[in-house]
Design a protein around this nucleic acid. Structure first.
Lengths: 107, 107
DNA sequence: TTAATATAACACCAAATGGTATCTCATCTG
DNA sequence: CAGATGAGATACCATTTGGTGTTATATTAA
């Protein structure tokens, strides 16, 4: 896949996929193990894993007849980069907001 | 809308909407002004703005016959919160990676 | 070879996206 | 004020994309 920012954001847009990311943050898992955690067929889980893989968020290691899925820390970089563009903005605005609230409370 | 995390991630999943967010980080704009920046009808832009609004990422102020759209700093919070859950993970893994690379270079 | 697992190939339905056409108002002009 | 114009909202439609499922076919450990 070519546009990593788009693929990563797309991958994170689905709640099942965000859950998978959280599970994999705890420990690497096979498709079968993941399927046990969801009310969904193995094939459906596999498709979510493919989207996550396209987004660079996970990597897969073939071990015997199993596929070990694990989180790929580098994959989140495009997302964090995009968001960091606004760090200053959010920071400034949230500070203004906080100050406004404090002013109000002191009235 | 009830699930702000989902709505915010969904809002950011579309490249046009991420572009709108970037434009609005620079300055607040009306729908018409935004439409000038995209190869798309006003109605289509409006729909993206509705999704962004559902995600809590923008707020709209009615001014005469215009609608001023501006970025809502609090809206990004659910996204940043979700991502911050992994801060330690990404940090640890990226550090291990960096160290591994450094070890390799010193061979 | 058999059981467990993984993947590929379809197919189906719902949601997302974008267009056109038609309204509603606010504002401007005479 | 009346009518024209401009910004936006909304309803409706077509097309595309996404999520899920089923079935069939690999792969591999035991």
């Amino acid at each position: 896949m070519e546009n990593q920012t788009q693929n990563a954001f797309r991958a994170l847009a689905d709640p099942t996929r965000r859950d998978i990311v959280q599970l994999l943050a705890g420990q690497e898992m096979t498709i079968g193990q993941l399927t046990d955690r969801f009310d969904m067929t193995r094939a459906a889980v596999k498709k979510h894993l493919t989207v996550l893989s396209d987004g660079g968020l996970i990597s897969v290691e073939v071990r015997g007849r199993e596929r070990i899925n694990r989180l790929e820390p580098l994959g989140m970089a495009p997302v964090l980069d995009w968001l960091s563009y606004f760090d200053q903005f959010w920071d400034d605005r949230l500070n203004s907001l906080k100050e406004a609230i404090e002013r109000k409370q002191n009235d």
